Simulated assay, not measured.
Amino acid sequence: MAAKSPVRMAIVGYGYWGPNLVRNFGEAEHCQVVYCCDLDPARQQRAQRRHPWLRVTGRWEELLADKELDAVAIATPVHTHYELARQALEAGKHVLVEKPLTMRVDHAEELCELAQKKGLVLQVDHVFVYSPPVIKMKEIVDSGRLGKIYFIDSVRINLGLLQSDVNVVWDLAPHDLSIVDLLLGRMPRSLSAFGAVHANQHIEDVAYLNLDYGDGLIANFHVNWLSPVKVRQMIIGGSEQSLIYNDLESSEKVKVYNRGIQVGQDPEKRRQVLISYRSGDLWAPHIPNDEPLARMAAHFIQCIREGRTPLTDGQAGLRLVRILDAAQRSIKAQGGRVVL
């Protein structure tokens, strides 16, 4: 690909997420969406009707054989991610994969090694990492404003969309796990997870995860397909200040509270367990209203053109697959703690 040529893209999978990828990559600078690939004839017709300029096909091999095609974005069922990504990388294509990267740790490791060997960009669409509120949260945490992080509580619940190939942990937890991965920059030491099956005989639709990051920091995640109300909230408690992120707020999605406890520093007083409560101001930073998926698409194209490592590269995807795999094993062991 010439230095100033547009990146020629194919979108693979035109189901729930595929149309969003076609739109955002179609609007991205230095990008040209040339293919849409889906096995379903009805989806092919829908894609062709909506985007008459696209070359719509049901033949994946056609994309692999096109030497002028630079990259593919894979938005297919999770169990297909590994094989499609592997074949695309082998064919010399840069690859974007929807979350989670794969369903197995060894498969995620193999994709990371293959992308590195081939000198290709492998990026995972952890879309919330590219959202302005999360970028602002990262800025606040890195500034030290919150002090030492004590705990993280995250809730992502709603009614549906029930999946048929993965449980609620693999479907919803990657969003919040990827946010915490960005904020903390390290893996947990261990985890315990509980899940329950209601709507399907084999797939958990309600789950709770407890992650221990060491140094007194624990993080809890509640994911649920059966809740009558939709909640997307994360609370980060710090020694100095605390932060609440509510993705459903139309404005002021991030709020920083100068509230908490203060333990007396005098050794004599500490023996008396002297604790005071602090109640100060509330700060809601200005956050732009940019579309996260547009940022993610632009970042992928930029990384290809400039030879950069994506913010959510294969290694980021691998870290989450390790956590998800451990959570699944813990659920099957009735909450048994798994060391990572």
Rank of each mutant, 00 (worst) to 15 (best):
248 L>I: 09
274 L>C: 08
258 N>R: 14
263 V>Q: 13
292 P>H: 05
284 A>Q: 07
244 I>A: 11
294 A>F: 08
236 I>F: 04
248 L>N: 09
286 H>Y: 11
193 A>Y: 00
223 V>N: 05
210 N>T: 10
237 G>N: 13
248 L>G: 02
281 D>E: 15
215 D>R: 00
224 N>D: 15
290 D>V: 02
252 E>V: 01
283 W>G: 01
282 L>Y: 00
221 F>D: 11
216 G>H: 03
231 V>F: 02
230 K>V: 13
271 R>K: 15
248 L>A: 07
223 V>D: 08
286 H>L: 13
234 M>K: 10
226 L>W: 01
244 I>E: 12
283 W>S: 12
238 G>M: 06
288 P>M: 04
205 D>H: 01
273 V>F: 13
291 E>Y: 01
288 P>D: 15
285 P>C: 12
214 G>I: 11
245 Y>P: 02
280 G>V: 05
241 Q>I: 02
202 H>L: 10
214 G>K: 03
215 D>F: 00
264 G>H: 11
218 I>S: 08
222 H>R: 11
262 Q>A: 09
244 I>S: 06
252 E>A: 12
226 L>N: 14
238 G>L: 07
200 N>A: 09
226 L>S: 09
273 V>A: 13
209 L>N: 07
192 S>D: 03
293 L>V: 06
228 P>M: 08
256 V>K: 01
243 L>C: 10
284 A>Y: 03
232 R>W: 14
268 E>R: 06
288 P>I: 11
276 S>W: 03
230 K>P: 00
240 E>G: 04
269 K>P: 00
294 A>R: 12
291 E>V: 11
191 L>W: 00
238 G>A: 05
199 A>Y: 04
269 K>S: 14
201 Q>G: 14
247 D>H: 12
236 I>Y: 05
288 P>C: 08
223 V>L: 04
247 D>A: 15
216 G>Q: 05
286 H>P: 05
293 L>C: 02
290 D>T: 02
279 S>F: 06
191 L>Y: 01
213 Y>I: 04
203 I>D: 07
196 A>R: 07
288 P>Y: 03
197 V>A: 08
286 H>M: 10
234 M>V: 14
235 I>V: 12
191 L>I: 06
243 L>K: 02
201 Q>M: 08
246 N>F: 02
276 S>N: 13
268 E>H: 09
290 D>A: 12
262 Q>V: 08
271 R>I: 11
204 E>A: 15
196 A>C: 05
276 S>F: 02
273 V>I: 13
214 G>Y: 08
256 V>S: 03
230 K>R: 10
217 L>V: 07
235 I>S: 11
204 E>C: 15
221 F>G: 08
294 A>W: 03
199 A>Q: 10
239 S>C: 04
195 G>A: 13
209 L>R: 00
288 P>L: 07
243 L>Y: 06
255 K>E: 15
223 V>P: 05
235 I>R: 09
229 V>H: 05
275 I>N: 07
